[in-house]
Amino acid sequence: MKPVVGATQAWSCVVISAFAIVILSILGALYKTGHHEFAGGAEDPDNGAELAGTIFVAVIVYAAFLVFCGLQGMLHLRENRRGAIQL
């Protein structure tokens, strides 16, 4: 099987996805618990749980990116071990 994306793009995607998962998970947890910095004032609507759900969907999307790009990077490593020439 041949990689779809380049090695640099695959490993960059892995790093960016890992950071995004960590940061968005923290933000989602803060919205879900109703942290006072994110909940707003008394007149603001209480929709922290809905926002947290949307953020966690984004975490799932980034996890899929992490898996796909990680597999692409591993394909590049496997191809390099075989002595393939990169153009």
Rank of each mutant, 00 (worst) to 15 (best):
A64C: 06
M74K: 12
F38G: 07
V4A: 11
Q9S: 10
V67F: 04
A84I: 07
Y62D: 02
Y62W: 09
L27Q: 09
T54A: 15
G34H: 00
P3I: 01
V4F: 15
V57D: 01
A39Y: 04
K32Y: 15
N47V: 15
G73T: 00
R81T: 11
L66F: 05
H35P: 10
F56V: 07
A39N: 08
D44Q: 09
D46C: 06
A29G: 12
L51D: 12
F56T: 04
A64F: 06
R78C: 10
L77A: 10
I26Y: 05
F19S: 04
H35F: 08
V15W: 15
L75W: 10
V4K: 15
M1Y: 09
H36A: 14
I16W: 08
G70L: 09
W11Q: 05
Q9G: 09
V61L: 11
L27F: 10
G73S: 05
W11H: 06
Q72K: 01
L30W: 08
L24D: 05
V67S: 03
A18W: 03
L71C: 06
V5R: 13
I26G: 10
G41W: 01
D44Y: 10
E50V: 11
A49E: 06
A49F: 03
A39E: 15
Q9P: 06
R78D: 15
S12I: 02
G34M: 00
V22K: 04
G6L: 03
N47S: 13
A58E: 06
L71A: 12
V67I: 07
M1E: 14
P3R: 06
G70M: 00
C69L: 06
D44S: 14
I85W: 12
K32N: 13
E43N: 15
D44C: 12
M1N: 11
A39K: 03
V67N: 08
S17H: 00
V14Y: 01
E37C: 14
Y62V: 01
L87M: 06
Q9K: 11
E43G: 09
A39R: 01
L24A: 10
K2R: 08
T8C: 12
G73E: 00
L75N: 08
S17Y: 01
F19V: 04
F38I: 02
T8G: 14
K2H: 10
G73C: 02
Q86L: 15
I16D: 03
I21N: 02
I16P: 02
L51I: 13
A58S: 10
G28T: 07
A20M: 06
V14C: 01
S17V: 01
E43A: 14
I60V: 10
D46K: 11
G48W: 02
V15R: 15
T33N: 13
I55N: 00
H76P: 04
P45E: 04
T33F: 13
F38Q: 02
S25M: 01
